[in-house]
Design a binder for these strands. Structure first.
Length: 590
RNA sequence: CGGGGCGUAGCCUAGUGGCUAAGGCGCCUGCUUUGGGAGCAGGAGAUCGGAGGUUCAAGUCCUCUCGCCCCGACCA
């Protein structure tokens, strides 16, 4: 990549801010704004200023190198897609307002791509016809638009963003597993080289509609996802899919069901106490409205009754998945009553017109107390299969202290930010868009696909969040906009310019503070901007034919004689890169 | 989409219904200063988010609207 190696700060387009703009909640975001890396244009819409853009390009280059290393071919697909494609895969109908639609001048339906499965699959359908062309992998780095109902947290959750997305095409699932594993490892290298510690966690495939999926999480209190971790065996998963061990149900014969008066006992705690039974002898019912798509691609709503044993908590994402709903929301009392259910005393027994999802804990536990669908009454000894039926699934939410299903140790929870994800898509898109190939036997088969994303801006935001102190950013040399920040405190001297040009000739990227500002202003700005290597030129040291070199974020300064500046800086750069390369491990693929 | 908050100069803020909208930072000019957010002097920059209304008088009160932030719903 051709990159301008130098910049005089007197010419720099952006400027630093002394005060944090209101609304900068996190330090990382505040410093990116104050240092002049980014600027907000609207809700969830940002410009990258020259400094931020350079950092993004550094990140891009790392991604390109790692994608190329596992056989990726870079390309570019359009942001605007014809709606036709999205109708064919159904996502035009199942995705709500997050997908922006518009018409072109002739009235054709168009969409702004949120991701590029449709575009790439349609392309592959034309390009791939034989098993001889497989496996293959393409990627691009492109703008996405998702009209998120609530952008927030600076660059963490935005509407317009740049994403690297790659797609793999294979003959079979074995091939997919290989490319998936290659991405799995490659992502650790990418985040590691960017200086961002991440963990890979099992995840929900959400709107992507795949099977196996992992998310790469940067653990941070400002994260919006909840991660469940087992410190003992290493199990990690997004809470949306995390599994936990559940107490087995009592081993007893089903008893006769009977109604008891339970006035005012509308919570599990109150009910269990009133009936003098443990919470695990109750079935808790949750009522949600699910939105579904019918065969004609029309949306309709249906009440979902989700049942979970009283000692456990339900996870909405699991309910949505088990119900195969496009989305779910809490149901109103009227909606609940319309299915013959009494809020507060509700159960699927006697209800009609609703979809019942029972957690396996409920299905496997006999004689649970449940609502009687009559105000003030509950039923004792309800039994799944005998008294009501429905879909059985794991809909329990793991939480802090839940027991690990693999090793039995208590698990903990942590907040995380998803900086990347990998999905085994399978044939969902290839089937709906007719992306097939002829195998060795001459048979037409759908291509088996994978999809893999990394949000660049979010990655930069996480790097800033991870690498700062009370004075500003301390960026890793691999993603800093420049490698060296040259601060001259001299006037009427041509030495600073000479050093500046010498560094440039050596291929070093230098931000040169040539302004006529006071020393304090320059030091403060340099600290804020977070470029890793600082060179300071002062009068006293210059009299000794020396300059001062320091590393941002570390105590200590070195005096280096003028002829040794370039070699010393080169060595420092090498050392900093090595430190980053040695600081990360690849977590084994479970 | 529900709840809350905020819109006054590039940034941060002040401003009982009452005279020409105030201050700090930043910016411009000149002089001085140059190893930790300098000093002095002068200066530019605001239709107080927008529209309507109440009033003798609106930055301030009312209505509508637009925008942004936060909590929730939502979300690869």
């Amino acid at each position: 990549m051709r990159r301008n190696l130098r910049m005089r700060m007197s010419q720099l387009f952006s400027r630093t801010l002394r005060q944090a703009p209101s609304g900068a909640e996190s330090k990382g975001y505040e410093y990116l704004l104050r240092a002049g890396y980014i600027k907000q244009l609207g809700a969830g819409i940002f410009s990258a200023l020259p400094l931020g853009f350079r950092s993004l390009r550094k990140i891009e280059e790392i991604i390109r190198e790692e994608m190329d290393a596992i056989g990726g071919q870079e390309m570019l697909m359009p942001v605007v897609n014809t709606a036709e494609l999205w109708k064919e895969t159904g996502r035009y109908f199942t995705i709500d307002k997050e997908l922006s639609r518009f018409k072109d001048r002739t009235g054709r339906d168009m969409v702004l791509a949120m991701t590029h499965e449709e575009a790439v699959t349609a392309l592959a359908a034309q390009e791939i016809s034989s098993y001889k062309q497989l496996p293959c992998m393409v990627y691009h780095i492109q703008t996405k638009w998702r009209d998120d109902p609530r952008p927030r947290a600076g660059l963490i959750r935005v509407r317009e963003f740049t994403m690297k997305d790659s797609y793999t095409f294979d003959e079979d699932y074995e091939g997919l597993a290989k490319q998936y594993a290659a991405h799995y490892e490659s992502y650790f290298k990418i985040f590691g080289r960017c200086g961002l510690p991440v963990i890979a966690v099992g995840s929900d495939s959400g709107m992507m509609g795949g099977k196996v999926a992992h998310e790469y999480m940067y653990l941070s209190p400002i994260g919006e996802d909840t991660i469940i971790l087992c410190g003992s065996c290493g199990y990690t998963a997004n809470r949306q899919v995390a599994v936990c061990a559940k107490d087995p149900g009592d081993d007893e014969q089903p008893q006769d069901m009977r109604e008891v008066a339970t006035p005012g006992k509308v919570t599990i705690e109150a009910l269990a106490e009133f009936l003098d039974i443990p919470a695990k002898k109750t079935a808790k019912a949750l009522f949600l409205m699910g939105t579904f798509t019918d065969d004609e691609n029309q949306e309709y709503d249906q009440l979902i009754v989700a049942l979970i044993r009283g000692d456990l908590e339900a996870e909405d994402a699991k309910i949505q998945k088990a119900a195969r709903a496009n989305r779910i929301r809490g149901a109103s009392d009227e909606e609940i009553r319309s299915c013959g259910i009494e809020p507060g005393y509700g159960s699927p027994i006697g209800a009609s017109g609703c979809l019942v999802i029972a957690d396996d804990s409920v299905a496997g536990s006999p004689n649970l107390a449940a609502g009687a669908n009559r105000e003030g009454y509950h039923l004792l000894n309800t039994n799944f299969g005998r008294d009501y039926t429905g879909t059985v699934a794991d809909i329990a939410g793991a939480r802090d202290g839940s027991i690990c299903a693999s090793c039995g140790a208590p698990m903990s929870s942590s907040r995380g930010i998803e900086v990347g994800n990998i999905f085994q898509l399978g044939t969902r898109y290839s089937e709906s868009l007719g992306c097939t190939f002829q195998d060795r036997q001459g048979k037409q088969k759908p291509v088996v696909m994978g999809s893999y994303g990394i949000g660049l801006g979010r990655l930069l935001a996480c790097i800033a969040e991870e690498h700062h102190d009370e004075k500003g950013l301390i960026l890793p040399i691999t993603s800093a906009p420049y490698q060296v920040h040259l601060v001259s405190l001299l006037k009427d001297s041509d030495v600073p310019d000479l050093i500046y040009h010498e560094l440039r000739r050596a291929g070093i990227e230098v931000l040169y503070d040539d302004r006529t500002e006071s020393a304090g202003v320059k030091f403060t700005d340099a600290e804020l901007m977070g470029i890793p290597i600082h060179i300071t030129l002062g009068k006293k040291n210059l009299e000794k034919e020396c300059v001062e070199i320091s590393l941002r974020g570390l105590e200590g300064k070195e005096l280096i004689s003028l002829p040794n500046v370039v070699s010393c800086i080169t060595a420092k750069m090498y050392q900093l890169k090595q430190e980053i390369m040695n600081s990360f491990d690849v977590q084994p693929l479970a």
